[in-house]
Amino acid sequence: MDIEQSQNQNLKCSVCNNYLNVAPVMTSDDGTVNKCGRCLFREPILNNRNTLYESIGAKLNFPCAHEDCTDRISWPEVQKHERSCRHRKIECPFWNCRDKGLDFVIMNDISHFETCHPGSLHKDKLTLSLQNVTHLQSFMKLLMVNDTPFLIMVHCIKFGEMVLIGVYNFDSKIYDYEIKMYSDQHNRRYLVFKERVFLYAEDQHCLYCLQNICELQTHRFSKKYPDMQKDKYKYYAKIDTMCTKNVLITENVLFEIVIREKQDVKAENSSSER
């Protein structure tokens, strides 16, 4: 059964005004306030889970939250579709952007980055030096691979003893990325770190949150939610800089980031299950 855009407001989240189509769905004692799973960490705190609604909702198809999208999405696919929808608009994630507040469809148009952030736009692969990483501390890059954009976040913690690297995509395909670490003098000696690419989510992937200075109520790892802080590093590869320098026998490590689409994901999953 399909839910139409014009149907009952009672099917909407009282916090974000999206449909109640992401579990867990929580409700107030009198049933007048409802909250979807997107807003679980946000106020008001509700203690009653509406499992009856969830069981009914699991049989429904919901409209996409993004303007111009006519797709109807089943309950289990809602969050994945919302983050990979071809009509999805995002606000520029770069700090101090002059066009902050302007939303655009990144999958269709990267002219904003070409105009406003040309120094952060790279093609095919990205190479960074540890010296620059520890000097800058926190920064973002946009990497174009086969005309597909990927957002890369880099952040140092513990005074540069640990480097966090996160890579995020905006479409429905499955990707992995590889970090090749090698000496700037002895490139025959290297280490390889492999990790998955995550779908970009504004409420979870934020450098201000990593620095513990974000105060946005809509961000899951904002300083407003101290109980969530323990999970904020889970979307990042963690590289021990001292250990890496000792293994590679160098003070300046080079990081080369390469992104690849995963092929035949179903076959790989069935193989791992066996």
Rank of each mutant, 00 (worst) to 15 (best):
L248E: 07
E54L: 03
N169L: 00
I165N: 01
P76I: 12
L136C: 11
K234M: 02
D124G: 13
Y236A: 03
D227W: 11
D2I: 04
S271T: 15
L191T: 14
R49G: 11
C13L: 06
C39T: 07
V105M: 03
K262R: 14
D103E: 12
T27G: 07
H219S: 08
C13N: 01
S55C: 05
P76T: 05
Y182D: 10
N108E: 15
Y208H: 11
M1D: 13
I90T: 09
A65F: 14
Y53H: 00
M153W: 07
V192C: 07
I179P: 02
Q185H: 15
C92Y: 00
E67L: 03
D30K: 14
K12N: 04
F94T: 01
T51N: 01
V247Y: 11
L199W: 10
V105I: 13
P63T: 13
E43V: 00
L11E: 03
H122I: 06
M181E: 12
S138V: 09
F62I: 03
H135V: 10
L11M: 11
L46P: 06
S272R: 15
K262C: 14
Q131C: 01
S272L: 15
L199K: 11
K266G: 13
K234H: 06
S183Q: 14
A201C: 09
N61F: 08
D176C: 03
K59D: 06
V105E: 04
V78H: 01
G37I: 02
S6M: 03
L210C: 13
Y190K: 12
L164G: 05
T127K: 15
V78M: 11
C116D: 07
M181V: 10
N246H: 10
R98A: 11
I152V: 15
L121W: 03
P93K: 07
V33G: 01
A23C: 05
K230P: 00
D227A: 11
F159G: 04
C243I: 06
P226G: 07
D240S: 09
D124W: 09
Y225V: 08
Q7H: 07
H205Y: 00
V25Q: 02
Y175F: 14
Q9L: 15
L164V: 08
I257H: 09
G166A: 02
Q211A: 08
V247H: 05
A237K: 00
I152H: 04
D227F: 15
R220W: 09
K12Y: 10
S271M: 09
V265L: 08
N169H: 08
F255W: 11
T127F: 07
M1I: 09
F104P: 00
R196M: 05
I213Y: 10
R38Q: 00
E77N: 14
D124N: 12
M26N: 06
R38D: 00
